[in-house]
Design a protein around this nucleic acid. Structure first.
Length: 289
DNA sequence: GTGTTTGTTATCAA
DNA sequence: CTTGATAACAAACA
């Protein structure tokens, strides 16, 4: 599912392909009208003919600037995809042309941003949890302020992490890490990976975490998120980057999506699954305490 | 038909 | 106020 590394990859792709390009027209599928804001007519008239100036991101939220006194907020939620298709259907990645691995628009296409001779940007969303909202700059700032520090920012220090942990001593660590107002960008995949790397169970109450465990958890979060950004995200289900390619962090996953398989660390126990914070949680019953 | 998948928010209960 | 549990949103898949 799109978490910080996936959304950051999409952000970079859109920035690379589309900044400076002008939207010629926009189409919205009828079954997605209630996820467009303010409404289709205003949405289209506000963005049509506008040039993309900047692509920003906070947590898992994309913020597109078209030089207006408004911003376009895009959340992919669970199955949203932003896929850019250049005129000739090929894309340059790391200096080399690569073929699209996925036809776009696909079956679940919900919106299309036609950039004329520069190509088309498709928004697909199987489960329709995502949204496209044009809001005032002021509202965009209010929205942005709801997000906490990101694991890849320099402001995310061990001291900061410890201070945040102290605010919720009785909360389960997994639930805390999933809350976007404390630390933003972590989702179900990376939270399980971070807990595994720290050898702690996701349902541990924060107050029971020792000093060394807190430090290890902090380091694990940073390391895992950074590596995942480097690998262009994780494609377990529907995630693809801004050119329709899958993310490469899958081969680095240690617990997530490994239920029933041998633990890669102790090589004895089998990865199990339980519910923590209402979410499916993969863990090694032998390694994680 | 049932349970599971998950980002986020709302609602309820203790 | 804090915390956890559950449902809701929607669609696919086993």
């Amino acid at each position: 599912m799109p978490e910080l590394p996936e959304v950051e990859t999409v952000r970079r792709d859109l920035e690379k392909y589309l900044v400076g390009k002008k939207i010629k027209d926009i189409t919205i599928k009828p079954d997605f009208l209630n996820k467009i804001s303010p409404n289709k007519e205003e949405f289209v008239s506000l963005l049509q003919g506008k040039k993309l100036i900047d692509v920003d991101r906070v947590g898992k939220l994309l913020i597109l600037d078209f030089g207006l006194n408004k911003k376009l907020l895009v959340h992919l939620k669970m199955t949203g995809q932003f896929v850019f298709v250049p005129p000739r259907g090929r894309i340059i990645q790391s200096g080399h042309p690569v073929e699209q691995t996925r036809s776009a628009p696909d079956k679940y296409n919900k919106a299309s941003f036609n950039f004329g001779k520069n190509g088309v940007l498709y928004f697909n969303d199987m489960r329709k949890f995502g949204y496209l909202k044009v809001v005032s700059n002021k509202s965009a700032e209010v929205e942005r302020a709801r997000y906490g520090v990101e694991p890849i920012q320099s402001a995310f220090t061990l001291k900061k992490f410890n201070e945040l942990l102290e605010k919720r001593p009785n909360m389960e660590i997994k639930k805390f890490l999933l809350m976007q107002n404390f630390i933003s960008g972590i989702g179900n995949i990376y939270v399980d990976e971070a807990c595994f790397a720290t050898s702690i169970m996701g349902d541990r109450k924060i107050r029971t975490l020792s000093e060394p465990e807190r430090k290890k958890l902090y380091q694990s979060i940073k390391k895992i998120i950074k590596k995942a950004v480097e690998m262009r995200g994780t494609s377990v289900n529907t995630y693809v980057d801004g050119s329709g390619q899958k993310g490469n962090y899958v081969k680095y996953l240690k617990v997530y999506s490994r239920v029933g398989k041998k633990c890669l660390r102790c090589k004895k126990a089998t990865i199990k699954k339980m519910k923590v914070a209402g979410r499916g949680t993969s863990y090694c019953p032998a390694c994680q305490k």
